[in-house]
Every structure is written in C-alpha cells, then in structure tokens.
C-alpha cells in the first residue's frame, strides 16, 4: 500500500474515534462542573411552574390558621396594584372632579332660588323618624368616609404633615371607628329604604324633570312629587350603594368567614370603588341641600318647609297634600291649606 493511502486510512480511523469520544468528553466535563453528581434541584419543579399550574404556592403547616399555608398568591400583587395605583386615581378623579363641577355650577348658575317670596306658612315635609334615619346615616357615613379615605390617601396626604407616630395612632383609631360605625350606618340605610322606598319609585314626572335637568339652567321648576328625579337618583345611589358597601364590608369585617383570600380581595375592590363613587355623589347631595338650594335644609332640620318652597320644587306633592288634607291638619296653627 502506498504511503499516501496509509495516511488517508489512518486519518479516517482517527476521525471515527474522535467522533465517538467527543460526546463522552463533553458529558464528563459537564459532570465535573456539577460536582460529578446529578442536581435534583435543577431537575425539580420550579416556582414559576407551580404558579402557572396552581396559581398559588402553598405548603403544609402545623398551626391552626389555614391561610398561613399560602406562601405566594399572585392575585395579591394585582390587588396591591389596584390599591396603590388605580384606586387613588378613581378616588381623586371622582371626588376632586365632583368638587370642581360643583364649584363651576355654583359660579355659573348660583343658588336655585324661588320665583315668589316666602309665605311664612310652613308645611310638615319630614316627620321625626325620617329625619332621625337621615341624620343617623349621615353622621355614620361622614365618619366612615373620612376614616375610609384615610386608608387610601392618609399616607399620601396626612402623613407628610404629621409625625409618623401620630399618623400611626390616628390610623389605628380610624380603623377602630371604621369597624364600629358601620352598624349605625346599616341601621340608618335600612330605615331609609323602609321609609322612602315607595315614594322613590319612578313616576311619570321623572322623565320630564330629567329632560329639563330639574330646570337648573332654564330657571323653571318642572313638576315633581314628594321626591323629584334628582332626589330619587340620590336615594337609589344611597340604597344600592349602601347595600353594596354593607355586603362587601361584612365580608371584610369577618375575615375568611364567608370568603377566602380571593373573595376578600374582590370585596375590597367593590367596597373601595363603591365608596369613592358614593362619597362624590353625597358631596353633590350636600351641596344641593345647603348652599345650592336655600330652604332645602330646613326640611331635614326642623322638618317644615315654607309653602312657597314646596309649591315650586314639589308642585305635584304640594297639590296632593292640599287635596288630601283640605282642612289642613298637617299645617301649623294659623296656617292656611294649600290651594
């Protein structure tokens, strides 16, 4: 065999041997790098795989609190993002937006006054139990609103103005009040629903009242029964919003008794959002009941309103009451029956 052929044959053999040995060398080097032992940690299920499969990471515990077994729950981060980023924007836009709108309305329209002078004769508009239910709810709601807003805005707005210890003490007491005052609030809301539900059902005057926007800009007084469409919207906001706050609040007042961690977080979404919207609506209610409409607050303080006031703002109810009690037993001494 010529020398050239021998060299070719030798090269071919070496190539085959090298091709067979090379993968073994690579595996050996990999085992050397890993301490020459298999790595169970690298081959076991990862945290990310567990999260993708079960949506949470749980373990086994020996203490009687089952919630402590949950080590990681990504929905908590979603809730945190809502509470820390989305909710302050919802509250800020709703409350500040309403304040700006009311200020603009006051500057443009001014107070809604009467076309005729007061008569000096007053008619009973709300009896004591109605006013009691209103103010019981109002007092409770103001405390709940202030202490509830502290959850969201306190650390942003109050804490920079006071020492951290003072803010912590205030927040602790605010939490106590937020847990205690729902009970008079519940009583008040249920009383108002029972007392005023019938008078707040839709009637034929509501569409016209809404179409004229209560006559706020046309300086007219569209006909209305005991409650006009705007007051009915406030009533249903308080009734439905109040029941929403009560239901979601009870879920949180008794943690994990009726819902798990996911249900509790949903309750917080609902509770916080409904509360922000209701605070904004009540600001409008407070405005129109005080400086927005002179004479309106008398109905809830003394219970009596002037005949001129009720004949313009609640003409239909005024006529119904006049027809129903032609002798005027509901009027004060010396009062005249409604025409």
């Amino acid at each position: 065999m010529p020398l050239r052929s021998k060299v070719r044959a030798l090269g071919f053999v070496l190539l085959i041997v090298f091709a067979g040995v090379w993968p073994l060398l690579l595996e050996s080097r990999a085992q050397d790098a890993a301490g020459e032992a298999p790595n169970p940690t690298a081959q076991s299920v990862t945290e990310q795989q567990l999260l993708q499969q079960r949506r949470r990471i749980e373990g086994r515990i020996t203490i009687p609190d089952p919630n402590a077994a949950t080590l990681e729950q990504p929905q908590g981060r979603t809730y945190q993002a809502f509470h820390e980023r989305v909710l302050p924007w919802i509250g800020g836009v709703a409350i500040l937006g309403m304040l700006v709108a009311l200020a603009a309305f006051y500057l443009i329209r001014g107070p809604i006054t009467l076309d005729r002078p007061l008569t000096g004769t007053r008619i009973k508009r709300f009896v004591w139990i109605e006013r009691f239910a209103h103010w019981l709810t109002a007092a409770s709601f103001i405390i709940l609103a202030v202490t509830g807003l502290n959850y969201v805005f306190g650390k942003r707005l109050l804490m920079p103005l006071m020492a951290p210890e003072a803010f912590a003490t205030w927040s602790q007491w605010a939490k106590y009040m937020h847990n205690a005052f729902p009970w008079p609030f519940m009583l008040g809301v249920l009383m108002m629903i029972g007392l005023w539900l019938r008078d707040n059902l839709p009637d034929r005057y509501d569409i016209e009242w809404l179409r004229q926007f209560g006559g706020f800009f046309s300086h007219r007084h569209p006909p209305a029964g005991r409650f006009n469409a705007g007051q009915k919207l406030i009533f249903w906001s308080v009734a439905l919003g109040g029941l929403t706050l009560i239901g979601s609040g009870l879920v949180m007042l008794f943690p994990f008794s009726s819902a798990g961690i996911g249900g509790t977080q949903v309750a917080q979404y609902v509770h916080a959002t409904a509360a922000m919207v209701l605070v904004a609506i009540i600001l409008a209610h407070i405005y129109i009941g005080t400086i927005g409409m002179p004479g309106a607050v008398d109905a809830m303080v003394s219970g009596d309103v002037d005949l001129a006031w009720v004949s313009e703002h609640h003409r239909v109810w005024f006529e119904e009451e006049g027809a129903r009690t032609a002798d005027g037993p509901q009027l004060g001494q010396g009062a005249v029956p409604a025409e």
Binding site: F132, W135, L136, A139, Y176, A180, W183, P184, V301
Partner: peptide
C-alpha cells in the same frame, strides 16, 4: 337641631356598643 344631636348621640352609642362587642 335636636334631632341631629340625637342622631349623632345614637350613632356614637351604637358604634361604641358594637366596638365593645367586637373587642
């Protein structure tokens, strides 16, 4: 005005009672 004060007092009493039961 008396009804407002009465309502506030009742609200505080109810809240205090609820807080005591809670505690």
């Amino acid at each position: 005005m008396r009804i407002i004060v009465t309502s506030i007092v009742v609200a505080v009493l109810l809240a205090t009672a609820a807080g005591a039961v809670f505690s």
